[in-house]
């Protein structure tokens, strides 16, 4: 699993990149009450705002971690946003992306580096 400075995690599954937010992010945001996901098939560039989440405290944007195409989104968290808090690394995933070259993930932080990053 890889991590971004935006507190997203990325995991390769069947040549697709699954993206979600970290436990740290989910704790900082507090109870999540609303998730708006992109349409499947959307082409995105790194740092595009692709997901809106709102917690009991505030709204936040989730940025695309890489260039690519959104091929699948997790509708279950739209209907039950609390899943993101309950299982951010599992059932609370956000979307799956198709990227041209999976080696771009090598530049991202591994778990140890992310742990250092959040202190």
């Amino acid at each position: 699993m890889k991590f971004t400075e935006e507190h997203e995690w990325l995991r390769v599954e069947d040549d697709l990149v699954v993206v979600g937010i970290t436990e740290h992010a989910s704790e900082q945001l507090g109870d999540i009450v609303f998730v708006e996901l992109p349409e499947e098939g959307t082409e995105v560039s790194k740092d595009d705002e692709v997901v809106v989440i709102e917690s009991v405290k505030a709204a936040s944007d989730i940025l695309a971690p890489l260039d690519g195409e959104i091929v699948e989104v997790n509708e279950a968290i739209v209907n039950d946003p609390g899943k993101v808090n309950e299982d951010p690394l599992g059932d609370g995933w956000f979307f799956k992306m198709k990227v041209e070259d999976l080696s771009v993930l090598d530049d991202l932080m591994d778990e140890a580096a992310y742990k250092d990053f959040i202190g």
């Binding site: 507090g30 109870d31 009450v33 009991v56 405290k57 609390g82």
Partner: peptide, 9 residues
Amino acid sequence: VQYPMGVMK
């Protein structure tokens, strides 16, 4: 603003 239980709970 909140305790460990969290706002919703």
